[in-house]
Amino acid sequence: MTQRSGAILEVDALERRFDVSAPWLNRLLEGRPRRTLRAVDGVDFTIQRGQTLALVGESGCGKSTIAKLVTGLHAPSGGAIRFHGDRDRMQMIFQDPFASLNPRWRVARIVAEPLRTLRPDTPEPEVTARVADLLRTVGLSPTDGTKFPHEFSGGQRQRISIARALAGEPEFLVCDEPTSALDVSVQAQVLNLMKRLQREMGLTYLFISHDLSVVRHMADVIAVMYLGRIVEIQPTADLFAAPLHPYTRLLLDTIPDLEAPDRNRIPMGGEVPSPVSPPPGCSFHPRCPLAFDRCRTERPERRADVHDRRVACFACETPADGAAADV
């Protein structure tokens, strides 16, 4: 694949497998086989500079594993990640602002850490000035630098995480459920801050969330994941106006809608199968209302001649498909 203009990250056939076998002795005595969990199972996507791509899906779908692969916290088992930027200028914001800040460090030291690591020659007064600037940027006061993380609320801690991420002057930020631990009114403050920073600094976000309304607000492009694979990837407006994959449609039909609450909403049946033993063929077929024989044996790919590589579904391939027309 050649580099498309403006792409900052290209992910190609990315795979990550984990060995979840029983311990060696158990395997020997009980004759149990090795077992492999395919957390990420052949994922492709591209992120354009200055845009936000969101990965959305239910727990265990592999979205956080992708965050760790992209940032290099895990090594891929297969496929390629091409980052057309400065690797030092990639940062991450984690979900839990209680676990991601060192409780024994003062805030100023936490925020200065990337600066001191990446540019150790920076004179100390400049570090101090920069930390004060960063704290102001995220809506805290420079005097907060002398406090410890436990003196702050969840939302303020997430602001500290963002200030720390910004200290390395990043161009690319991986945000793994950055607001899931926050109350909604605090979430609004953090999301607004992230959008403002993106506008002002031209940041690119890989944004991971399970919350479709948050993703709709933040993302330019949304990739819907199911059991380690992207089942659908579309620009945000298109995805909400005309979802293609039956899983996306069921997901959109399932989430409570504050503007049009429906008490008689029919919930999606079944559950996400175990990624250790996914069903054969399309892994969504046991829950899919449109599934037919081919879905049970063959795995659908995103193809150029089917909705321009936006969806991996056999039901969307046939032109006579009534389901795709009625959305």
């Binding site: 909604v184 709709r216 607000h217 809608d257």
Partner: peptide
């Protein structure tokens, strides 16, 4: 304020409504 701070599934807004401060 609480209702306004929840991102909508239907409407596009640049900025979510914020309640200043915290509880």
């Amino acid at each position: 304020g609480l209702m306004g701070s929840i991102p909508s599934l239907r409407k596009d807004v640049d900025e979510l409504q914020m309640i200043p401060g915290s509880m």
